[in-house]
Amino acid sequence: MESKWNLNYKTIDTSNRIKASSATPAGFVVTKNEKFNKNPEQQQAKDENDLKKLKVKRAYEKAFNSVKGIFMNVVMMFMSGNSINQFTIIIVGMLFSNPIKALKQTNEVFKEFEEEDGDNSFLLKPKLTYIALSIAQLLVGIYKCSSLGVLPTTTSDWLTFEQPKTFLESAHGGTVF
């Protein structure tokens, strides 16, 4: 459930803020730019730009959240050792399921930063970062698999599928009676 203290950037009405600027609250310092540039349209565009920057910043923060997960996973990976047992299986499962889940949810995660009018190109970079980091996490999982020896990378893994040779000659007989 959404916490009531969560700030949803989408709900911020920028137009209201412009209006509110006429009556700045006590202690609100008006910047020089604001003082001298009283053009409200310019001001509005500038504010919107600031907000976008803020959104991008927050989006990056969100994207980098998953990095913390990577470090924890690496630590767990080293702790669990290289023998196949219940723990390593669970850990490998986590290492794979988490980033895949994250990748699936990419758009949902960044939904709160999206503009209503639909121009969301500014979110592309954070999204890509997010995807790259998830993939990095996935790679950690693959690395774990290879160190466990469950990746079919060696000849022995494909041995079963090799066709036996056909023998052209066969010798019979043996000692005389």
Binding site: T155, S156, D157, L159, S170
Partner: peptide, 19 residues
């Protein structure tokens, strides 16, 4: 199995000549 799987997961192929 056509080969012997070694510890490093490589394979030594068996010589299976029936004659």
């Amino acid at each position: 199995s056509l080969g012997k799987v070694l510890g490093n997961r490589n394979v030594l192929y068996k010589y299976l000549n029936p004659n």
